[in-house]
Amino acid sequence: MVGWWVLLGTLAGGLLLGLLARARNGRIRATQQARTAPTLPAPVRELLDPAAELTLVQLSSTFCAPCRQARAVYEQFAATASGVRHVELDVTERPELASQLGVHRTPTTIGFDQAGAEILRISGVPKLSDLRAARGGTSPVE
């Protein structure tokens, strides 16, 4: 009898978690307290392209299928939007880098402006249309 309750509870919890994750997946969040370039870890600072208006640094890990899907979306976005660059940083062997950036899951993508200040964060796999809308200014970032 207890087994049935554990089963039901686990499935209900899973349903809740899954819906929550789905709602959060790929949402573009504007960064409130901008982190400026000098405080960034060196490996991230080196990736920033001073020529690009927006550099998207995607933190990925080896064991991560959505990282691959996210990469495909960002690459397509960067290829079709002007002034946008996408770079990927594998943190599988460097989790301390992720914690310095306050990143707890992969893929998480951090957007930096030309000055190297963080302006947005996206966890999970974004929709190409959302990225374009945010970039085009038709729909401001949340």
Binding site: T10, G18, A21, S61, P95
Partner: peptide, 27 residues
């Protein structure tokens, strides 16, 4: 139950709990 939760999330939502937890576990 823990294994069931991971399997169910993967099956129903395509969510990889291992990916989500990897960095946390490493830390």
């Amino acid at each position: 139950a823990a294994a069931l939760l991971a399997a169910f999330l993967n099956a129903a939502f395509g969510l990889c709990l291992g990916c989500e937890a990897y960095l946390l576990v490493r830390r």
